[in-house]
Write a protein that binds this DNA or RNA. Sequence first.
DNA 1: GTCTATATGCAGATAGAC
DNA 2: GTCTATCTGCATATAGAC
Lengths: 201, 201
Amino acid sequence: MTTEEIILSSARKVFRSKGLEGARMQEIADEAGINKALLHYYFRSKEKLFEKIFIEAFADLLPAVRVSLNQVENLSQFLTFFISRYFDLITELPYLPQFILQEINRNPDLMRKVTGNNELPIAQVKMLIHRDVERGLIRPIEAEQLMVNTIALIIFPFAARPIVQSLIFDNDQAAFENFLSHRKEVITRFVLDAIKPQNSL
Amino acid sequence: MTTEEIILSSARKVFRSKGLEGARMQEIADEAGINKALLHYYFRSKEKLFEKIFIEAFADLLPAVRVSLNQVENLSQFLTFFISRYFDLITELPYLPQFILQEINRNPDLMRKVTGNNELPIAQVKMLIHRDVERGLIRPIEAEQLMVNTIALIIFPFAARPIVQSLIFDNDQAAFENFLSHRKEVITRFVLDAIKPQNSL
DNA sequence: GTCTATATGCAGATAGAC
DNA sequence: GTCTATCTGCATATAGAC
């Protein structure tokens, strides 16, 4: 592992949990076992280092959509794949949603830096939804609403973890983890039931 | 309006949009048309001033649940009331969700300060859900999952506004506002359809 | 490339006049 | 109560030796 990689790894850890403003160069240096000067030698400034970490974090979440679209025949299948993949991904990276929400809200201009070369197949998903609505395979719903609903259900408990854990589970951590452990199946069923046409049994 | 009220109003504005770490005492003073020293005269420290604003912000979101529970016969009715009230509330205060998520994640201890005297009727809602599941009025679902789902659907587009606006709506602000304008009805229907028993038409 | 030492700037907080 | 001026500490960033 080169020094640069060690720095990036340490910066990743610190920035993801504290954000740009909460992070300290000193803490990143300590985490990497080097001193502050070396951080600047490699990345010039805190902002530049942060930007690298942020773009990478955002990119980490995007591939889930692409992969799912390939081996899929209809919308229900896509949603099942997508929820499964995306939920697993975020389970591995539970800090990411809140990190990204926080930084994008602080500086919406960051969106420009991450969308450039990452053309998501949003349009295809919209078409898939429209098609299945037309065919009567699902209840009528706007594509955008369904997409936002699905992502909201996946991300929210991670982004709002301390609140959910406290208000809903009275700080019973085991109960919260049990809740998360079968949430993937719950969400999948919830979404599919919500869009299932009324005359199907 | 007393000086103290002017300060609180200015602090509210600055803290809600920038958070504790992003806010500057100077900016709050400018906003209030006074100088920094006076902020400390009234509230001793930035943290103390912030805490007042945060507790108040959290409290702003809580009454929605209580009111809804009173004039309600069954779960579907409760959900309809709750979604409507809560969605309207957040439409008026769109900064609050992300503000609260950010600060609670930065310092989860803040939860202790807001839950003390604000006993929410979470237990009653859970019982209401269980009861209607038992009676077969809705599909089987854990109370906690349904509660989290409902809140997620309401809050997410506000907390993630810049991302949704960019990725889903390609920065077409009018399209996004149109999306929000009938989202309340969409969510209500989405949730009710998801829990509707299979044999009902 | 990596370090120690230092410069620079800024933000929170205080002292003290009015 | 409100102000100006100042202190203090800290965080980013740089200079310069090795």
